[in-house]
């Protein structure tokens, strides 16, 4: 596999809700096998950017390329096919509330694999145990805690062994040990399956541990003010806002 080929490219992207511009002039490239971090202050538009990257919200102007295909210029059925290769963890978990955890994780498998019920059952148990939820198969989302919902969402995102995983604040609401395990899991997925991972996060520890590329969004200027390896940004970025963020404001 070509490790440094561009997987997702963002060109002159402006995103807006109606007349309200959330972010403008975004340009960055996510390479195959990257763990790419989207960071920035609360409310600056990280989740919105993720929605545009995964094909849920159309950009005001500019383009998102996926394997050199412009996501918003191809026809919807093609876009739909591309979206099926994404695994997504939403900020709120977004589990289907009328289904048990097993059904939540199993639905993508049912729809797209044609596996027998028994095999699906085994796969579901495996994915749930990967996120530490073995034994919770028959629980409904309303019967588990927020952090557990997040982890179940993660298991669902991984169900189809996607090409790209998008995580919106995966470790928010998790204890340090689970958060650490999640980081290990992300790195493991990248190593073993070559998955590209896009993570929205504020957690400095995990951001430095897993990220090898990033973009920093600034709510004041409404655009990106830095990009690159977070460790390098910490060492070299001349921008005081970026430094303040990466050092918890201690510099």
């Amino acid at each position: 596999m070509n490790r440094s080929a561009s997987h997702i490219g963002v060109r002159n992207l402006t995103i807006a809700y109606g007349d309200f511009v959330v972010m403008r002039d975004l340009n960055f490239t996510i390479n195959r096998g990257d763990v790419f971090i989207i960071m920035g202050g609360s409310g600056c538009g990280k989740s919105t950017l993720m929605k545009v990257l995964i094909g849920l919200k159309s950009p005001a102007t500019g383009q998102v390329f996926y394997n050199d295909k412009s996501l918003w210029e191809i026809d919807p059925t093609d876009r739909q096919q591309i979206m099926q290769r994404f695994g997504i963890l939403y900020q709120s978990g977004a589990l289907w509330s009328s289904m048990t955890l097993a059904q939540n994780v199993g639905l993508p498998l049912e729809l797209y694999t044609g596996l027998a019920a028994g095999e699906i059952h085994d796969l579901v148990s495996l994915k749930l145990s990967l996120v530490g939820l073995a034994g919770f198969e028959e629980f409904y989302p309303s019967e588990i805690s927020g952090g557990m919902r997040k982890r179940a969402g993660l298991a669902r995102a991984m169900a189809l062994d996607p090409e790209v995983l998008f995580f919106d604040e995966p470790s928010a609401g998790l204890d340090p040990v689970s958060a650490r395990r999640l980081d290990d899991l992300i790195l493991e997925l990248r190593e073993s399956l070559g998955t590209t991972v896009v993570v929205v996060t504020h957690e400095l520890a995990s951001l430095f541990a897993i990220g090898n590329n990033s973009v920093f969004l600034d709510p004041e200027t409404r655009t990106m003010i830095a990009s690159g390896d977070p460790k390098q940004l910490l060492a070299e970025s001349p921008d005081p806002k970026v430094r303040r963020f990466l050092t918890r404001g201690e510099e």
């Binding site: 929605k51 995964i54 094909g55 849920l56 739909q80 096919q81 979206m83 099926q84 994404f86 997504i88 939403y90 900020q91 709120s92 978990g93 977004a94 589990l95 289907w96 509330s97 639905l107 993508p108 729809l111 797209y112 669902r156």
Partner: peptide, 17 residues
């Protein structure tokens, strides 16, 4: 409506459903 609020419908759409 609740499914809309919880992003459950978004999750369906991205799954291609």
């Amino acid at each position: 409506g609740t499914m809309q609020v919880n992003e459950e419908i978004d999750a369906l759409k991205t799954l291609g459903v």
